[in-house]
Design a binder for these strands. Sequence first.
DNA 1: ATGGCAGCGTCACGCTGA
Length: 295
Amino acid sequence: MDSQECLHANEPWIRPGPMRIASWNVNSVRTRLEQVTAWLQRERPEVLCLQETKVADALFPRQAFEELGYQLAISGQKAYNGVAIASLLPLDDVQIGFDALLGPEATALSDQKRVISALIDGIRVLNLYVPNGSSLSSDKYSYKLEWLACLQRYLERQDQQGDPLCMVGDFNIGPESRDLHDPERLSGGIMASDAERSALRQALGERLVDAFRLFESGSGHWSWWDYRTGAWDTGRGWRIDHIYLDPSLQQCATGCVIHKDQRGNAQPSDHAPVVVHLAWPAADDGEDEGHNSWD
DNA sequence: ATGGCAGCGTCACGCTGA
């Protein structure tokens, strides 16, 4: 866009886009470190959000990211869960856990390290690792529904802050039939039950939209392939890793891509990275959106 | 209906993930 470039030429303190925000469940950041750094070196996304880092903060392999120019915000624990944000741009106002916004009511849901956010170039980047739920009859399933109800309250609070919001992560939910390789068999089961889908929709509200579906309406696009069933070799995947944008970022989105090739690596994660491309900062269309003022 | 594969912690296999 020429008009946008002119704008930036006249406003040299505005960094010209694009902004790419990626999400990747790496299933152990230490085991996957070489794959992650190789991918970062090649793709150089401005932001990479990681899930299932599976490492206590003191043992997080910080140096490998910092050598590539990435700053880190991490929230991990031994063996399970764990989230992190790596960014080429400064990370401000890092918030860890639901209790950062909700206080004591959410403390019980903050033992498991599944929530981290930071303000990056004026965008609130929220990185989530939604509980899996195990099976419909499991205690973990009720925990998942409770967690999603808490997410709804958290997002209502986040909305009040007024920052543009990009929410990414492993949602452990296939929102619709087109997100499952075998909807007839899988619908209604774990990760595809009405209650999970409804709880996610409730949390999203009217404002948050799945960036991938802004560009691709078809089925057959997956972000996760089960290790156990030879799912990768037979193409039986799910699309459970998502990027959600609020209205101010929807209008900036220029693409959303799943880097499926990473699932074909030797010793891969069972998830592939998802990347949203944003033209950011937004071009000034004359209407003050509240997020792009520089006076 | 069940298991299958992978990572972790701690050293034989159980727990967890999805």
